[in-house]
Design a protein around this nucleic acid. Sequence first.
DNA 1: GAAATTTCATGAAACGTTTCACAATAAATG
DNA 2: CATTTATTGTGAAACGTTTCATGAAATTTC
Lengths: 342, 342
Amino acid sequence: MKKMSSAPTMKDVAREAGVALGTVSKVVNGLPVGENYRIRVEAAIEKLDYQVNSYAQGLKSNRTYSIAVLLPNTFNPFFADLAYQLNLALQRRGYKMLLCCTGYNPTEEQEYINMVRQNKVDGIIGLTYNPNLVVEPDTPYVTIDRYMGPGIPCVASDNYAGGQMAAEKLADLGCRKVAFLRIGSSLTNEPNKRRSGFENGCLARQLNYEMKILDDGDPFDGFIDFLKEHFHNRKLDFDGLFCVTDNLAFQIMKVLESMGLKVPEDVQIIGFDGARMFGDGRYVCSTIVQPTDAIAEMCVELVLMDNAALRPPLVCLPVSYAYGGTTSETAQELQDADGGIF
Amino acid sequence: MKKMSSAPTMKDVAREAGVALGTVSKVVNGLPVGENYRIRVEAAIEKLDYQVNSYAQGLKSNRTYSIAVLLPNTFNPFFADLAYQLNLALQRRGYKMLLCCTGYNPTEEQEYINMVRQNKVDGIIGLTYNPNLVVEPDTPYVTIDRYMGPGIPCVASDNYAGGQMAAEKLADLGCRKVAFLRIGSSLTNEPNKRRSGFENGCLARQLNYEMKILDDGDPFDGFIDFLKEHFHNRKLDFDGLFCVTDNLAFQIMKVLESMGLKVPEDVQIIGFDGARMFGDGRYVCSTIVQPTDAIAEMCVELVLMDNAALRPPLVCLPVSYAYGGTTSETAQELQDADGGIF
DNA sequence: GAAATTTCATGAAACGTTTCACAATAAATG
DNA sequence: CATTTATTGTGAAACGTTTCATGAAATTTC
């Protein structure tokens, strides 16, 4: 005479175990309950194969144990790595990750932010580009790389130190004339500090440096022209290049190689991000590595923090340097690789 | 005397508009309502800045408009691309994507599958490795690359044709002795058809071929040995290599280059996946491109299909070939790139 | 113009939890 | 042993929707 149609509810469990509804709730939520009661309830849960209904749970408690993550996309290796690390960090705490790709679209970004108001998520972690996102003051919101104002914590790696480190590394490698390459959004975001850090590092090491910044509107082949101008016929105006991202570094490297130059023999190239595309510790180029694991951990920590007043406005996490070559020695380490090779 | 503490509910809207609760519900859900009523309700919604509570909605309707996507990780470019395309396809239909990285872990996979039973999602799209996942028969579930049995649609690219295409391409490029390289899981999954397709293609074009398959347990440097054996001192036992993934192709390429060989001048290398890491149409190596957009679209289509009986057991989607070099001509196209260069 | 029919707003019931005032039992106290 | 105190199970109320039987109003029909 049981209703077989739908999934069992707490009421069913209570009836089966011969206890009250509230008792089942306590057992399910790990609240203190008499030992014999607990056993009876757990047996009933097992027998009926009961699963809590998270809609009902959310309706009462206003918690979904899910966090929305806003990223422009997942194919950029840095974003992909962030998504992965955030998923891990959230999972460890029993939270689910709602991933939203915004495509740098301010409207999409705002739409996703609004989602939290429909109680779909308990908080938001966002790497966004809309400078005037409207966020409810009491909405748990944490940004990556973009400082949005007081009350909204921003987590970033120490971009300034990263720029400095790049300069020092190039100096250590014997470079004498270097350049910083960047495709610039004019946003006042944290990654912009890479430039000043690099500048400072060059000054400290008495390195000649040049800045090549292409504004948003400029075509990419501004860089091609730049490279042709300074490297044509092995001209080698620069012996070291610091590229604002690995993405750019990789492209520059390809172009230089197609011009007959060798990296790093002729030109040293250092990128930024250090997102491993193969999950095994190798990098496509030498790079300043962002600690995506620590960034993710911190973001999750902050977004789940109870006392909003204690949240710091800005958290900077230390970067490191990684060599990008694949030598036959390092190849040995690849056996532990887990990058989806079938 | 309004309660300012929490968000406005339908009841508040009804009171404000002077209509019944059910009328508000109809307006919110786009059901037929008298024009004057609709206007009044919409005004009230606007005024109160009302947002539906999706917990309550889910509790009644058993729908969350969210789909769980199971992938081993997001840093593998192919998975990253899939995640991105799935997000797009779901977004277009008003669905949210719950992304779950399973790390090839059968237990995690099963755990996420169970999630659907807690009513957290309306369906699951999974690229999984657990051969005996337990899925409720009536749970909308669609797999990528893994045929799990009748009733569970599998979406994949035409791996057989892809293998064939690789062989033909190598033949067209003038290769005479080629090899297929793979790190093998023994799973009977769709990607395994790449080998037989390649084999068939080689036979059709009278290409000498060799298969090098490393089992799961084998260390990666089995490949190093293989490469040393056949390419040491420009030996060039093979003039073309078909690698089962771009990942592997890229690694092989790096090793060969570190051995003093040039790609593609000395050895042609073709990978598989064609996941663009920079979102701009360029590839890290020549490759058989999987149509991740079509795969994603089909997965979403199938998982949201009302009539489960109409779902096909297996859907194969056409692959294509892409050249992997970055020439200065192609560099011009990079200006439209959107890969997160700051 | 009265009766039959259609249209559509109404509001109570239900969805499956959590919470909390209350009751019942057990333990501690003098 | 009676009384106070602490402990813990109980079950009704509430969360904010959707749904549907009800009835009022508008429309059509003869």
